[in-house]
Simulated assay, not measured.
Amino acid sequence: MENKYAQKLIEKIQKELLQNKFDLDSIINDLKKIREYSLEEQNPVVTKALRLAYEHLEANNAFLIGIPDDEPIHEDDQTEQNVSDENDIESFEYFLSLLHDLSKKNNLLDLREYNKAFIAF
């Protein structure tokens, strides 16, 4: 994301996660604010990813989506869900890191994979 306030909010969440602080309400509020900035940047993939992420957190009180596989599955019929039974902090940290540099094509591709996983969940 290009907006410096969005970057600061992402860094704030990442810093708290490094300190083993997973304050769900704070994270959800920060993601909602970051989404407002992404609306201004007019990036629909990121905007959707942020909305789906905070809705997922609200519904499950945890981040249960795993890191997308390196090799995408091309057969739509056999889509594997990469989900966890417990809070997947590593995946959430990766999700946040994707938001930092959207100029990398792979970051947007992984965000699309997260979007698919959120919807399939």
Rank of each mutant, 00 (worst) to 15 (best):
L108I: 13
I67G: 08
K116L: 08
L17T: 06
P44I: 09
L99V: 08
L57T: 07
D69R: 15
D85H: 04
E40T: 09
L50D: 05
N3P: 00
N60D: 01
F118T: 07
L109R: 08
D70Q: 02
D25H: 09
V83L: 15
E2T: 13
K21G: 05
Y54Q: 06
L24H: 12
K4Q: 11
F95Y: 15
Y94E: 03
E40Y: 15
D101H: 00
E41D: 12
K48I: 01
L9N: 12
K15N: 13
K21S: 10
K104E: 06
A53T: 07
L18E: 15
I119G: 04
Y54W: 03
R51D: 06
N3K: 04
R112Q: 06
I89L: 00
K4W: 09
Y114A: 06
D25A: 10
R51F: 09
A62I: 07
K8N: 14
L99R: 05
E40H: 13
K116S: 07
M1D: 10
R35C: 11
L64Q: 11
P72L: 03
Q42Y: 15
N107V: 07
D85L: 00
F22L: 11
F92W: 05
D23L: 08
H100I: 02
N115F: 05
R112H: 02
L111G: 03
Q7N: 10
H56R: 05
D23A: 12
L98S: 03
L96F: 05
Y114K: 08
L17M: 14
N3R: 07
L50V: 06
A120Y: 13
L98W: 05
I10S: 07
K8A: 11
D85Q: 09
L50E: 04
G66Q: 14
V46P: 08
E40M: 10
K32E: 14
E75T: 05
M1F: 09
F121S: 15
V45L: 13
I119V: 14
D88N: 07
K12T: 02
L111N: 04
L98V: 03
Y54H: 15
I10G: 02
E16T: 09
A53D: 02
S97I: 02
D85E: 14
L109D: 11
A62V: 07
F95S: 08
L64K: 15
V46I: 08
R112V: 04
S84Y: 09
R51H: 01
D30W: 10
A59R: 10
N115E: 03
P68H: 15
A117P: 01
K21E: 13
I10R: 08
Q42R: 11
Q42P: 02
A117S: 08
R35A: 12
D70T: 03
F95D: 03
S26D: 14
L50K: 05
M1K: 04
Y94W: 08
H74L: 00
L24G: 10
K15F: 12
E55M: 05
F22V: 15
I13P: 04
K21I: 15
